[in-house]
């Protein structure tokens, strides 16, 4: 099994890196870009077959380490 964890800054948290990406894309001529937000993807290889249990455990991992919930939110997807 695999867990795909998306960690993103909460919508109300300023993202200076996203702003820099927007600026750089504008400089390259992609003027249709009105905003960018940078996050991260963490792939976990997991032992076991129970998707529901895996999702629950990975969400706990997010709360304890993978995301800082003061500024970040996360989503967990389990794949075979």
């Amino acid at each position: 099994m695999k867990a795909i964890v998306h960690v993103r800054l909460k919508p109300d948290v300023l993202d200076p890196q996203g702003q820099a990406i927007t600026g750089a894309l504008h400089a390259l001529g992609f003027t249709e870009v009105i905003g960018a937000r940078q996050g991260k993807i963490i792939e976990l290889d997991l032992d076991g077959t129970d998707h529901n249990l895996a999702k629950e455990r990975v969400e706990t991992m997010c709360g304890q380490l993978l995301a800082n919930t003061v500024i970040e939110q996360f989503t967990v997807t389990i794949e075979d």
Binding site: V13, L14, P16, Q17, A20, N68, V70, I71
Partner: peptide, 16 residues
């Protein structure tokens, strides 16, 4: 702040 002894987070500098 990461361990929770102090509140808040130290984020990337605004000017990068």
């Amino acid at each position: 702040s990461e361990v929770g002894l102090l509140p808040g987070v130290l984020m990337r500098n605004a000017g990068l």
